[in-house]
């Protein structure tokens, strides 16, 4: 078992958002989490990644057999958790190259490895740029500054490729993408899929799942996973919308 979430409750400023989440993810699996807006999908991603504004009031998360909630944000990342942001942050003045070299080396240091050699690093950058079809000049620009929506999301997948996570949580990576960018992003994810890693793909629409085929689909509603199934569940949601879920569980 890679990730195990049991009865997770989380709140922000006293308001409970997650009300007892249970989820198990194994290596080699792709899970899709769907649901209407405002039901806690992004909160779940943030709590796994360790965003401090959320208070976990009940329940537990175990990752690689460790109590994940006790680890600081950076150590979760160093243990192989990657979160693709719905709204990637613009950081003027920090180049993607410098950002990635710092990240790669801090992760390597945590794992007891020497810093990456400059040539090896540049080679890795080039390979991964090609993976998400980033034109060469992007990497010398400041992180996300002045990027289009599509460029920002491609940049998230690029970073994921650079850091080779064990568990990647992609938070609405498809939002705001045209069909070409969507295809590129999905293609990047598919190429990175192995038997040793896992993906949790959070999405509002079924569209992304035409490209990233999930093993399991979960429906999150009012802070709980109310339905789980195979990939066919996504098609059913696409066809019927979320109203029948609302009727059933409200």
């Amino acid at each position: 078992m890679l990730l195990s979430i049991k009865n997770l409750h989380a709140s922000i400023k006293g308001k409970e958002i997650l009300k007892g989440i249970n989820l198990e993810v194994n290596k080699g699996e792709v899970h899709a989490i769907m649901g209407p807006n405002g039901t806690g999908k992004s909160t779940l991603a943030s709590v796994i990644a360790g965003r401090e504004v959320f208070d976990v009031t009940e329940g537990e998360i175990t990752y690689k057999g460790k109590n994940l909630l006790k680890l600081p944000v950076e150590d979760r990342a160093r243990e192989g958790i990657f979160m693709g942001f719905q709204y990637p942050v613009e950081i003027p003045g920090v180049s993607i190259t410098n950002f990635m070299r710092t990240a790669v080396n801090e992760i390597r240091k945590y794992r007891g490895l020497d810093p990456i050699a400059a040539i090896e690093f540049l080679k890795l950058m080039e390979e991964n740029k090609r993976l998400v079809e980033i034109q060469s000049n992007l990497t010398n620009r400041s992180v996300n500054e002045g990027f289009s929506g599509g460029e920002k999301k491609k940049n998230e997948i690029f970073q994921m490729a650079m850091l080779e996570p064990t568990l990647a949580i992609l938070d609405e990576t498809d939002s705001g993408l045209d069909i070409d960018a969507l295809r590129i992003v999905a293609n990047g994810v598919n190429k990175l899929r192995t038997k040793e890693n896992a993906f949790v793909v959070i999405t509002h629409y079924q569209r992304l799942l035409d490209y990233i085929v999930p093993d399991y689909v979960h429906v999150l509603f009012q802070g709980k996973i109310v339905k789980s199934g195979k990939k066919e569940l996504a098609l059913e949601l696409e066809e019927k919308g979320y109203d029948w879920i609302k009727k059933e569980f409200e």
Partner: peptide
């Protein structure tokens, strides 16, 4: 910027290095 700090730390960068990167970027303008 706490959002930028979280973004950097989510990539495995420790808080000290993240602060340094942001301060240097601020100065570098």
């Amino acid at each position: 910027d706490t959002e930028a700090m979280f973004y950097l730390m989510q990539r495995g960068i420790g808080p000290e290095s993240a602060r340094m990167l942001l301060m240097f970027a601020f100065a570098n303008e």
